[in-house]
Simulated scan of single mutants.
Amino acid sequence: MIGASGASRPDFEGTNHSKFAPVPVFAIRRPGTVDQFRSPRDNASIAIVDFGDFRAGPVGKFVTSRKASRYSELSGLADVSAAFELGGFVEYFPVDWFRVRNETRQGFGGHHGIVSDFSADFIVPVFGGLTVSAGPRFTVETAKAVSPYFSIDTVHAMATGLPVFDAKGGTHSAGVGAQLSYRINPKWEVHSYVEYDRLLGDAAKSPIVTVRGSANQTTFGVGASYSFDVKVQ
């Protein structure tokens, strides 16, 4: 399955400004398996293990770089390079109308920490191909994943006037998401969604957030996806 969404989302984590940006959609499943529910929260993944109600496999995410010169609220802080997060996902449908999913990823590049995303979605078919879904979100991150974005060392404290802050890992955010999707036919699907996260722990306590940003992070998006078969001889 390939596709794309157009999303209005925070310029960077912890800011109170948003920007419109494209978001790719990509997933692979084994032949003969049922096309499952997908949340806009899901990152690019391949289901190596697929028993219908239980799926697992590798997952990846790209985190864009954060250039301090582009944002006045980051003036005096260091740039953070782009990061790749690679890991695995598991998801389970205890019943047809409810899904739980976890993605745990290791960062490379801009950060070298571990990020673990938990989500749950209640899935309600309305009529025809129209489906409404919603549920809670929760993220835990290690210190090496949080620190590059939220810590302030002595040098940068002097440059910004912000206090020194050493961001640790732990509970990172909690929130909720909702999606409205419509399957036009077996190949095409369109969707719209909203995701809200509240930063927690040291991410929320960082002066970058308390003085210059916001702990409330909201994303709105619309998109479409196309499913097709790939045969290998």
Rank of each mutant, 00 (worst) to 15 (best):
M1W: 12
G3E: 02
G3Q: 05
A4H: 03
S5D: 09
E13D: 09
E13T: 12
E13N: 05
T15R: 12
S18I: 11
K19C: 12
F20R: 07
A21R: 13
A27K: 05
P31N: 09
G32W: 06
T33S: 04
R41K: 10
D42P: 01
N43W: 11
A44Y: 00
A44K: 02
V49E: 11
V49I: 15
G52L: 07
A56V: 10
G57V: 02
P58S: 12
P58W: 07
V59T: 03
G60K: 06
V63H: 01
L74P: 00
G76N: 06
V80M: 03
S81L: 01
A83P: 00
A83Q: 05
L86R: 12
L86N: 05
G87D: 06
Y92A: 13
P94G: 04
D96R: 12
D96E: 08
V100G: 06
R101E: 08
E103N: 10
E103R: 13
T104I: 15
F108E: 02
V115Q: 11
D117Q: 04
F118I: 09
F118L: 13
A120R: 06
A120M: 10
D121W: 02
I123F: 00
F127H: 06
F138W: 03
V146K: 01
V146I: 11
P148W: 04
I152K: 00
T154E: 11
T154C: 07
V155Q: 14
V155L: 10
H156N: 10
A159K: 09
A159V: 02
G161M: 04
V164R: 07
V164M: 02
D166S: 14
K168G: 14
G170M: 05
L180K: 04
I184A: 15
V190T: 15
V194R: 04
A203V: 15
A204W: 03
K205E: 14
K205Y: 04
A215S: 05
N216T: 02
Q217F: 11
T219M: 13
F228E: 03
V230G: 05
V230W: 07
V232T: 14
V232S: 14
